[in-house]
């Protein structure tokens, strides 16, 4: 591949907090790297393990999940299930030899545009340092 490699990050953001926080980053014209592709869901707990695994399977270099701060979940406690699910998924990724840092969960409130932009900045850098996902390379072989 001649193209320079840019990390591909799939983001699953809950509508009420993190997605709104990302919007806030936009309205405040904060800049962050364009690696993330955001998919909106109502609650971060909508994201099942299959979706995360599928994203990696298909060649995502990283997956970002954004939800509401503890105690602030729009749906009371959905974010706690997300938190636990992601904790286990990170372990599972590690067991299979995929760096768990490629799967990141952050709580971002609707007001935290700055936190969202900063997180994107950091995460894009971190993933760039980790390099392309080994599964992405395998995916290309298959194709």
């Amino acid at each position: 591949m001649a193209e320079t490699w840019n990390p591909k990050i799939v983001g699953f953001l809950c509508n009420w907090c993190c997605y709104a926080g990302a919007d806030m980053a936009g309205t405040s014209r904060m800049k962050y790297p364009p690696n993330i592709r955001i998919i909106r869901v109502m609650c971060s707990s909508r994201i099942n393990a299959e979706m995360v695994i599928k994203a990696f399977q298909m060649g995502a270099d990283a997956v970002f999940i954004g939800g509401c701060h503890p105690g602030d979940c729009h749906y009371v406690d959905g974010n706690y299930r997300t938190q636990k699910r992601i904790a286990v998924l990170r372990r599972l990724l590690e067991h299979l030899g995929i760096d768990p840092r490629r799967l990141r969960l952050e709580w971002v409130s609707a007001a935290e545009g700055e936190k969202f932009a900063q997180t994107m900045d950091e995460f894009a850098k971190e993933v760039a340092e980790l390099g392309p996902s080994p599964l992405a390379a395998l995916q290309r072989e298959v194709l």
Binding site: V41, C43, S45, R46, I47, N48, M51, R81, R85
Partner: peptide
């Protein structure tokens, strides 16, 4: 209220979350 938490937890995929179906997200 449509959070979809149950749809994500259902082991057999028996719960569909309208407008945020697995197929739509995939």
């Amino acid at each position: 209220k449509g959070c979809g938490s149950c749809a994500a937890a259902c082991p057999s995929g028996a719960i569909a979350m309208n407008h945020f179906r697995d197929s739509q997200i995939v």
